[in-house]
Amino acid sequence: MNTDPSKSISEKESYKRKKRFFTALDLMALPGIIYLIINNYIPMGGLFIAFKKIDFAKGIFASDWVGFQNFKFLFRSSDAAVILRNTLLYNLAFIVLNCVCGIAVGLFLNEIRNKLAKKFYQTAILLPQLISIIIVAYITYGFLASETGFVNNHILKAMGKAAVNFYSKPAYWPFFLIFIHIWKTIGYNSIIYFSSIISVDKSLYESAEIDGANRFQQITKITLPLIKPIAITLTLMACGRIFYSDFGLFYQVPMNSGPLYATTNTIDTYVYRALLQLNDIGMSSAAGFFQSIVGFCLIMIVNGIVRKISPENALY
């Protein structure tokens, strides 16, 4: 891979290093590796639970193998298609919007000259991140409730319109949920992009300006291409989570309202509600396994594509 002649010296040196059993870099990576083994890889062995019917008297290891039976419940419901569709569509929307809005806001923040204004904006848009999702659910309820909600009592009534029972009309909720998701995550999202944007060498802009480019062109031709790597990284990682959903957003915020299931029921909420009664760890493990496998396949495909187009941006 290193074909640059100016690197020949280091090549020899790193060749020498290869001979040693542990290089300094290996040592530096070690804490992280050890942690991942402890935290992720050892428990990963427990994925076999998805294929067992757990009997605590026998213990986890001696329980019976039941093949794919624990996976059936994911597809048995008359709502199975709805659940999968909801999870997928919301995540696609989130991936696209997170990227576009995050970059846009990061760019806007970069344009602000006034230091005080910049500080204020950054603090303000980060606020929603700090509030736990259950509280967000209560606040949303405070806005949207039928009897006591702000919107029904102060806005709709003032306009002379009838009260709307938001918690029984599924059509509104994709908008509500997407809005709330963006609202909550834009703070941090934009900061990630912002810290990449400010790392772009300022002299590039200056020379572009001398060449006659206006600000819009500077942004589209210089900034955006240079933050492409991080955008691709984030998008790729989001693909791996394509079948997961933010439980708080889809369960708490709609206040667990039955009529809204058509647009708020996702895999995670379905599994949670199902297992509230059954509490079968084999089944919950199967659900997690299913979500992981799909994400895994998707990433393999997408990363493969990215690797063909711009190899240095692929995840591995």
């Binding site: 992720n40 428990p43 062995g45 994925l47 997690g288 992981s292």
Partner: peptide, 15 residues
């Protein structure tokens, strides 16, 4: 790879 596969709560807890 750790981002994709997770053992789940019970194995993590036991571990």
């Amino acid at each position: 790879f750790t981002m994709l596969f997770n053992g789940g709560l019970v194995p993590t807890y036991i571990s």
